[in-house]
């Protein structure tokens, strides 16, 4: 892939605005992941959905078939035929 290294920049020590933006973004992450998402996970429908995924050994965020545990018995069954 082609590079876009020139598009990045190096900010001087005096660029407090950049550091402030970084602090704000970090705080937003802390709030969303530290409070928001756990609160969503506590909701009964979400809790039910997550435990259903666990019971079926499904990770919806898996990128490749080898990362989904649920595939293993299906593959073993097919290979045994």
């Amino acid at each position: 892939m082609a590079t876009t290294q020139d598009s990045t920049r190096v900010v001087g020590r005096g660029d407090w605005a950049g550091w402030l933006k970084l602090l704000c973004a970090s705080l937003a992450i802390v709030v969303v992941w530290g409070w928001g998402l756990p609160a969503i996970s506590r909701l009964p429908p979400q809790r039910h959905y997550e435990s259903w995924l666990d019971d079926h050994r499904i990770d919806p965020s898996a990128m490749f078939y080898t990362e989904v545990e649920m595939f293993e018995p299906i593959l073993k069954r097919r290979e045994a035929r």
Partner: peptide, 21 residues
């Protein structure tokens, strides 16, 4: 996405998830 296929297929039952995955 592969993981999403497993989740969507499983919600329709064993036969569906078997073919979907």
């Amino acid at each position: 996405s592969t993981g999403a296929v497993a989740a969507a297929g499983a919600s329709l039952g064993d036969e569906a998830v078997d073919v979907a995955t």
